[in-house]
């Protein structure tokens, strides 16, 4: 297990390095930050000084190695706009996004798994068909529209939940989180539901397909022959078998939920990383964009690693021992 983990971490480092190259050169190609940083009526001397201060006068490969060198020390540059370290800036906005994504993920499992298992169990009955038809809406309705609709219904008409902003936060180990305060949680429900709708449909479909496949297996018939109840068959025997594809997809989707919650965060004016990214792109705040992308890569790598570890909990057959990975 340890060898396997080390090998996975080594692989991850290579992925991170490759991403550094792509991100750095990709961002270098768009726009010239000097245009934004320096006022048009600056003297050539001022321009040169600024260029030198940010290192733009160096050849691109030198800039790249400086970037990598700093990155390895956890320094991804200073925001041109905020003057703060880009990493600090992102870390400041990250908890809001992470907690939103976590709640969204929770909702999508809570809604998707039981619906999918039930739809698979009743595949040929009207209940199963109705759930499948419903999931098509979950797939095809655009995020911003769902968000606005939820605001209209639950905030404007029914006045049950607040529409925008973040609400109260609680300090947990120095991190500001809303999820642990009642008021903050109320603010999270609508955006989290918006994020969850698409994933829930995805989970529903995966769970249904898996359930249908599992139900015809001999072990289900044998469990029935033991006199085990249908509920236990569905939620122990079947569920544990179908969790592997669901965890895989949810892992990847969690990454995308964290990295690309941009639209939902904008609709609900949620002060997360997505909003920071949009603002940084508009102002060509290169270090923040680069730092954001690098953090995203890091998040994906960590999630994939966690998914692999979760596999070994779910499926004893992939549990590896010693060096045989």
């Amino acid at each position: 297990m340890l060898v396997y983990l080390l090998r996975r971490i080594a692989q991850s480092i290579f992925v991170a390095l490759a991403m550094m190259v792509i991100v750095f050169f990709g961002i270098y190609m768009i726009g010239n930050p000097v245009d934004i940083l320096i006022s048009p009526d600056a003297t050539p001397r001022e321009i040169e000084e600024t260029m030198a201060r940010f290192g733009f006068d160096q050849p691109i490969y030198i800039q790249f190695f400086t970037f990598v060198g700093n990155a390895l020390q956890g320094d991804l540059g200073r925001s041109f706009v905020h003057g703060e370290s880009a990493v600090t800036l992102i870390l400041h906005y990250m908890p809001a996004t992470l907690e939103l994504a976590a709640l969204g993920l929770f909702f999508s499992v809570l809604i998707g798994v039981p619906l999918g298992v039930y739809a698979g169990y009743k595949a040929d009955k009207w209940q199963g068909r109705a759930i499948m038809t419903g999931s098509i809406f979950g797939f095809s309705l655009p995020n911003f529209w769902v968000g606005m609709l939820l605001i209209l219904i639950f905030a404007v008409e029914l006045r049950w939940l607040p529409s925008t902003g973040r609400g109260d936060t609680v300090d947990v180990f120095g991190i500001r989180l809303s999820i642990f305060s009642e008021n903050g949680l109320q603010y999270m429900i609508l955006p989290a539901l918006t994020l969850a709708l698409y994933k829930a449909s995805l989970v529903t479909r995966l769970a249904r397909a898996g359930t249908q496949e599992a139900l015809v297996q001999d072990y289900v018939k044998f469990a029935r022959a033991k006199g085990v109840s249908e509920t236990r068959i569905l939620f122990v025997h079947v569920l544990k078998n179908i969790m592997i594809p669901i965890v895989t997809v949810l892992g990847l989707e969690l990454g995308s939920m964290i990295a690309f919650a941009v639209v939902t965060e904008t609709v609900f004016a949620w002060p997360g990383m997505g909003k920071l990214l949009i603002d940084s792109i508009l102002t060509l705040d290169r270090p923040v964009i680069v730092a954001y992308l690098m953090m995203t890569v890091l998040i994906f790598i960590v999630i994939n690693l966690v998914v692999d570890i979760v596999y070994t909990i779910l499926d004893p057959r992939v549990r590896v021992t010693g060096g045989t990975a």
């Binding site: 001999d218 072990y219 044998f222 469990a223 033991k226 006199g227 085990v228 109840s229 236990r232 122990v236 025997h237 544990k240 078998n241 779910l314 499926d315 004893p316 057959r317």
Partner: peptide, 18 residues
């Protein structure tokens, strides 16, 4: 016939407790 992801004890105990 045995569920691959459940331990033998789980699969036997549930047969008794059903």
């Amino acid at each position: 016939t045995l569920n691959p992801v459940l331990r033998i004890d789980t699969q036997m105990i549930e047969a008794v407790r059903a």
